[in-house]
Simulated scan of single mutants.
Amino acid sequence: MSSPSARWTAFAGQRLLASGPPAEVVTAARHALDAGDSEPLLLFDDATGRPVDFHLRGSLKEVLARLQSAPAPTEEGSEPRGPGRPKLGVVAREVTLLPRHWEWLATQPGGASVALRKLVEAARATHGDADRVRQAQAAADRFMTMMAGNAPGYEEAARALYAGDRTRFNKWTRAWPDDIRDCARRLAAPAFVRDAP
């Protein structure tokens, strides 16, 4: 269900239970349930800020087994990998281009697929920092909407997040519950690269 580098965060109400590898996080969440914690439990994927739909029913051993046996999530619209070049992880999808684009791709060494892969890799290298900022903004915003959407200063904090203004972001999140504030700041940190020394 998750890659080895994945990081999840679990909350019981407004209280942070754990943040780290998924197995550690679901263990902490399962222990909270076993201890009779009545607060609603929420698990988040730190990379996206989205809630993780993972069932904590059963014993800890059963929960961890379910975590290990669950298939890795696929991107929206992707199909499970079938025959053909499995070591490369090639995934076939539809691409819609204008005729002049197809004509240009047909003249490239290696054909359209090789040319498109090279273009994507070049764009990733050129725009990697901007992509990381955008991903951090989206993840922090999703988390904030769910956990602090009604908190004072939420809208101002969201504006500061998208403006890349760490000082204003910290100001407007200061009064939030400690664990929510700290998690939002951690998720948002890569969005503030412009104010780094």
Rank of each mutant, 00 (worst) to 15 (best):
L98E: 14
C183T: 10
H31M: 14
A163H: 01
R159A: 14
P152C: 01
K118R: 15
R30E: 11
W176A: 02
V91W: 01
A130T: 07
V26E: 01
A65L: 07
S19Q: 09
A72N: 10
S38K: 14
A189P: 00
A23Y: 02
K87V: 04
G84V: 12
Q108I: 09
A184V: 09
E79F: 14
R185S: 07
Q14Y: 03
P51W: 00
F169C: 05
D129A: 15
W102R: 07
D141F: 13
R168D: 14
D165G: 07
T74E: 12
F143T: 02
A151D: 03
A163M: 10
T167N: 06
R174M: 04
R186H: 10
A12I: 02
G36T: 04
A23R: 08
W8E: 00
R159D: 14
Q137A: 01
V26M: 06
L17H: 04
V114P: 00
V25T: 01
A115M: 00
A163V: 08
F54I: 03
C183Q: 12
V114M: 12
P51R: 15
P99M: 00
V26C: 03
R50I: 11
L43Y: 06
P177M: 06
V120W: 12
A140C: 09
L88N: 10
G82C: 05
G84Y: 06
L187D: 03
A130D: 11
F54C: 02
F11Y: 05
A28C: 02
A139M: 06
A6Y: 01
A47G: 08
A47F: 02
A112H: 06
A32W: 05
R30H: 13
T145I: 02
T96A: 11
W104P: 05
K118Y: 08
T126A: 13
T173F: 01
